[in-house]
């Protein structure tokens, strides 16, 4: 049995995790990738456990990924989709926690539009909590699956140059990836118009660029972020066509990166907005579908690791 490093009750973010903890999750995920590719995908390590997906934001891929991960490990998985508009935040969130305690859930996967809401919930429930994305704060399983995808392709994380491009200001994916990649010794660059960069972004230990060609120069990995359409009508960005012209990833801009640079996107993509449609589908360059596959394996590993710290384990 390999040594166990990860000893937290919850997985709320990447910030604060140490390299061996991340390493452990990724190593275990690798095993699940192989298992998921085999004929018998099911095992019973979480048999008798209850996993609840509590989503205050609409999501298809993350929720499905958590659901599949739980089921493959033999857990009972329940989905609770709460429409954000019907929620009177704060108070109701804690009421929900009480309800979940009464149901004796074991692992809770939570997505919430407000930064910090998942942490608040975790303080009130008895079960383990996985942050499935909170506001613009963190999305740790996405960063882990991105890291797994990169590590399997490049054989390492340390020493790589990774450009994260697009709406960093609103992105929890960007933040979790910055923390993880920095922790693992990669060099992180942010490429975005100034209107889509948070204040003092360089304090996160990244290099900041406002020009795609400069930002992508000699990169090993190009990670595109989704830009929401309502931010493209003049508030942060003048228009979609201007955004694509200067910050959309196409073959021409990608040519500035290393010849074997891989292209990633957390999905769902806006084709022709942040990424050229043909490029997104180019299996030589883009690993976007692979990222989805890695997502299930990473979430299985997270369940497994959190389950060993559960009461009665």
């Amino acid at each position: 049995m390999t040594k166990e490093y990860f000893s937290h009750k919850h997985l709320l973010g990447i910030q604060g995790l140490h390299p061996p903890e991340i390493q452990e999750i990724l190593d275990l995920s690798d095993r699940y990738v192989e298992q998921n590719r085999g004929g018998d995908k099911k095992q019973s390590s979480l048999r008798g456990r209850t996993v609840i997906n509590l989503f205050y934001e609409s999501s298809t891929r993350t929720r499905t990924s958590f659901e599949l991960a739980g089921k493959r490990l033999g857990a009972d998985v329940i989905n609770m989709q709460v429409s954000a508009s019907s929620v009177n935040k704060g108070e109701t969130l804690i009421d929900t926690a009480m309800t979940l305690n009464a149901m004796h859930a074991d692992i809770l996967c939570v997505r919430h539009p407000d930064s910090g809401a998942v942490k608040l919930l975790s303080q009130k429930v008895n079960c383990a909590v996985i942050n499935g994305g909170d506001g613009s704060h963190e999305h740790p399983t996405q960063a882990l699956l991105d890291a797994l995808t990169i590590r399997r392709r490049k054989g390492r994380l340390g020493g790589l140059t990774v450009a994260i491009c697009g709406d960093v200001l609103h992105s929890r994916v960007a933040r979790s990836n910055i923390y993880l990649l920095n922790t693992m010794g990669a060099r992180v660059r942010l490429v975005a118009p100034r209107t889509l960069l948070p204040a003092q972004a360089q304090r996160l230990g990244v290099e900041v660029f406002h020009d795609m060609r400069e930002g992508l120069a000699d990169c090993d990995v190009v990670m595109m972020l989704r830009v929401q359409n309502e931010r493209m009508k003049g508030s942060f960005i003048p228009s979609i066509r201007e955004y694509f012209r200067f910050f959309g990833l196409d073959y021409e801009k990608l040519a500035c990166a290393k010849p074997d640079a891989m292209v990633m996107h957390p999905g769902p993509m806006n084709r022709g907005v942040e990424i050229d449609s043909d490029l997104a589908d180019d299996v030589e360059r883009s690993v976007i579908r692979e990222q989805v596959e890695m997502g299930v394996a990473v979430r299985m590993a997270c369940f497994d690791i959190l389950a060993r710290n559960l009461a009665g384990a």
């Binding site: 009508k233 003049g234 003048p238 228009s239 012209r245």
Partner: peptide, 15 residues
């Protein structure tokens, strides 16, 4: 600087 000089939405400055 803003579309239609309305002071609301950014014009396509880059282009």
């Amino acid at each position: 600087a803003t579309k239609g000089l309305k002071g609301e939405e950014l014009a396509e400055m880059g282009m």
